[in-house]
Nucleic acid binder design. Structure first.
Lengths: 344, 344
DNA sequence: TTGAAAGCGCTACCAG
DNA sequence: CTGGTAGCGCTTTCAA
């Protein structure tokens, strides 16, 4: 069913039908009703490609998911963020185009989006401290929103981020409040912006209690199960092991637990573990230690906000182009019972 | 840069340039070379929408990701599958269109893909035993490939699946070989095809040793952390607890571990746990029990196969339309040290 | 081997 | 308020 066929059926011109369907004001209510009814009856929907060609707008948003060739698993965070964005897109008539690329092909993916003109805007993930994609995309001229921030970037860019610094500060404070002093930090690679911020939060909490963090307790590594395991084995094998471990990723935390088990130690007795991961608001903690969780911090929610921001930018609506979501303190699924080290 | 501009630049007609770029045989080698060079130099790429409109082919594949409104987390399996499919699409010039929908809006999503004609084919996930999407899509006439199977479906459909039955049969056999007899099964909802198959594998293994499975040890539930936790608490609180637990999902297994910890029990001593999850081929097991892992079973690989199958179907190439990937025995990340219950 | 021209289905301009 | 018409950028007959 095409517009022409529908208009022939109604004895109207394609012009009028198009206007009626697209809510133009110059159509009489009577014809608009008739047209709408006929469209529904015959299951008419405009051909996206034809409309895109005519309007010059693709009505689609591109998501570029970076993927490491090294470890096969896709960061589940991207899935949740994408799901949230997808809701907003479909509500607004946008399609979502996904491009999964390894780090080296990434620039090519953007360029291809730009020249093929099949998206009106982009979402990019996981920025580094000084992310080169920002100047590159500014040059390209395709609107985009960054999921995360890039602290050292000089150019302006739109972003939606979770307050990683504060989240880690509070997680660390929770452990400090419970009497822990030797707290290990198993962080992601710290050229990534989020990881740098998490470390900053950890250090700030320690500093506020006058504790100088032991550099041999802080690690910046790929967030894999294997890294979690290996680092834990070596940490807990020392003669001065940490009493608590703060981990930046759920997958990594699973490795930490394997390490703890292999050593015959018990979670919450021999050592405590807090996992942070972005979207775990539905977490239920079994220990007697009170923990805060925050729905607002959910990655899905961040995806919704980023999508809306991008749509607004594309349509020239002005609104905020920077959004920091507070993640009060979100503890990950893998967080176990937490040991009270000493009454504070 | 449009085709017209490029052809003007070269003093050729758009027709010839189009033919040269698309590999039509009637173009002379000389002009083809010239055209290719100019296209590269000016960074020309055809406008996807215009081409789609002219050819009637969208050069895009739609993925419909079902999402439960109940638990906010997206099944990571979909992300991995999607990543694999994405590789194949971009190699073949296809875009990937993602549609994230809650279960009730799903039919609408397909219908919308069909009427808007913005995809040439579809991938669908997570079929139930008698999935209604199969007859529906057969009626729609849009080519599709199912990730998984639907045992009770009568109509023909193309699918790519992992051998869930065999995987669970072997996992169960591993525990039986180690002397376990009371093995709990924490399965997904068994109206889902994969879950039904997993249970069948479990039961087959038990039957082959002449063990009648205790129905009070088998559970069919949503694969959430909370379910894993609650079921484990109640299982291990019984006077006849299982000595081993076989779990159908990593997320659920995390809950199982929380349950075990809360009871003050130790993995691999008081109870053993095997997690199965599709794509965990990089798993390293710390115990002394030999386990088999299989790269071929990876979901990412399944995504690649499904994408290729769909592209072949769309282009009328005949080839297999059913593919069963063997997952020798893939143990999940959350699998802990496994207790040798009694020498077999 | 090349080119002219007619669409693909829709929107948007200009008349009426 | 409604309609004719000229594109959007590309492919694809049909002619040369």
């Amino acid at each position: 069913m095409t517009l022409k066929e529908l208009s022939d059926l109604l004895g109207l011109s394609p012009t009028t039908v198009s206007r009626a369907l697209n809510g133009y004001p110059e159509v009489s209510e009577a014809t608009r009703k008739k047209v709408a009814a006929a469209a529904r009856a015959h299951g008419y929907a405009p051909n996206t490609r034809a409309r895109a060609l005519a309007t010059g707008r693709a009505m689609a948003i591109g998501h570029v998911i970076p993927i490491s060739a090294k470890h096969e698993m896709v960061n589940p965070i991207f899935a949740d963020f994408t799901a949230g964005a997808g809701e907003v897109y479909s509500r607004n008539g946008y399609d979502m185009l996904l491009s999964v690329v390894s780090d080296d092909d990434e620039e090519q993916a953007y360029r291809s989006f730009a020249t093929k003109r099949n998206v009106d805007g982009l979402i990019i993930h996981a920025p580094s401290l000084d992310d080169q994609r920002i100047p590159f995309l500014n040059d390209l001229g395709l609107p985009y929103v960054v999921h995360g921030r890039s602290s050292n970037a000089t150019a302006h860019y739109a972003w939606v981020d979770v307050n990683n610094t504060r989240a880690f500060q509070r997680a660390t404070e929770l452990l400090l409040d419970l009497g822990h002093k030797r707290i290990a930090l198993l962080n992601g690679l710290e050229h990534m912006d989020f990881a740098a911020r998490r470390r900053a939060g950890y250090e700030a909490a320690m500093a506020s209690r006058g504790i100088t963090p032991d550099p041999t307790l802080m690690f910046s590594a790929e967030m894999t199960e294997a890294q979690g395991h290996d680092l834990t084995r070596s940490l807990l094998g020392r003669q001065d092991p940490p009493t608590a471990i703060l981990v930046s990723s759920m997958i990594m935390a699973i490795g930490v637990r394997r390490g703890i088990e292999e050593l015959g130690l018990t979670m919450g007795r021999d050592v405590s573990l807090i996992t942070y991961d972005d979207d775990l608001s539905y977490f239920r903690n079994g220990s007697d230690i009170p923990v805060y969780t925050s729905t607002r911090s959910s990655v899905r929610e961040a995806g919704r906000h980023a999508a809306q921001m991008l749509i607004d930018i594309i349509n020239g609506k002005d609104g905020p182009t920077e959004l920091l979501l507070e993640a009060e303190l979100t503890l990950g699924l893998s967080t176990g019972p937490i040991r009270r080290e000493r009454q504070p």
